[in-house]
């Protein structure tokens, strides 16, 4: 007998071999919380969305010590609708994730939701980076103008330290975001991506 026929025969007869869970045991299970990757993606995405907002709030141009030009403030406030749009898009994509879809559609929707957050983070990093660089430059220019008024180099040193601290904090935040990404892609999405690739390979 062919191995697969034997397997099928065994499979058909296997019903009696499985444990029989009672009504109460199953009921207890539905009260428990899911630990699916979608849940984790949701939590990590919320952290990322929060971090993005934090990055914007940290905007150095808002600090009183720096007189920022009006256009920079306008530029800054213009990002709020964009952020709201990203959050809306994330929610919409997240809602589309449905365990009753085909395996491929389900994987596509999960990856799409992730992509929204990745684009959001990218937007924040680029925008935040521009803001930090421009503001630091403006601050430096102001410092240069005031340099003549300063006696000695202690004040100039202070400004330099502030700029360095801003850059350092920015780098630190970037590091944290990178860490979260590493965690997410490395652990959560590895298997999904492998399986998605396997399905895509079939269609090629």
């Amino acid at each position: 007998m062919d191995g697969l026929d034997l397997l099928k025969k065994d499979w058909e007869k296997s019903d009696s071999k499985y444990p029989k869970l009672t009504y109460d045991e199953i009921y207890k299970m539905i009260l428990k919380k899911s630990s699916s990757i979608v849940k984790w993606i949701f939590i990590i995405s919320l952290i990322e969305l929060g971090l993005g907002l934090f990055l914007i709030v940290l905007n150095p141009t808002l600090e009183n010590s720096i007189e920022s030009p009006k256009w920079l403030d306008v530029f800054y406030y213009a990002t709020f609708p964009v952020i709201v749009y990203f959050i809306f898009l994330f929610y919409k994509n997240y809602k589309k994730i449905n365990a009753t879809d085909s395996a491929k559609t389900l994987m596509q929707n999960i990856l799409k939701t992730r992509r929204t957050v990745r684009h959001y983070i990218l937007f924040n990093l680029i925008f935040g980076g521009i803001l930090v660089v421009v503001s630091s430059f403006i601050a430096y220019m102001q410092m240069e103008n005031n340099l003549q008024l300063l006696n000695g180099s202690s004040e100039a040193m202070k400004y330099t330290v502030v700029i360095f601290v801003i850059l350092l904090i920015t780098l630190l935040i970037l590091g944290v975001i990178y860490g979260i990404y590493y965690l997410l892609y490395g652990i959560l999405l590895k298997r999904l991506k492998q399986n998605y690739k396997e399905l895509k390979k079939l269609e090629a």
């Binding site: 630990s35 699916s36 990757i37 979608v38 984790w40 365990a99 009753t100 879809d101 085909s102 395996a103 389900l106 994987m107 999960i110 959560l188 999904l192 399986n195």
Partner: peptide
């Protein structure tokens, strides 16, 4: 039939190995 789909989707995609 509905169970097959959700079951397999969970095993292939959603389940995070503990």
């Amino acid at each position: 039939t509905w169970m097959y789909r959700v079951g397999l989707n969970t095993a292939i995609t959603l389940y995070r190995k503990s």
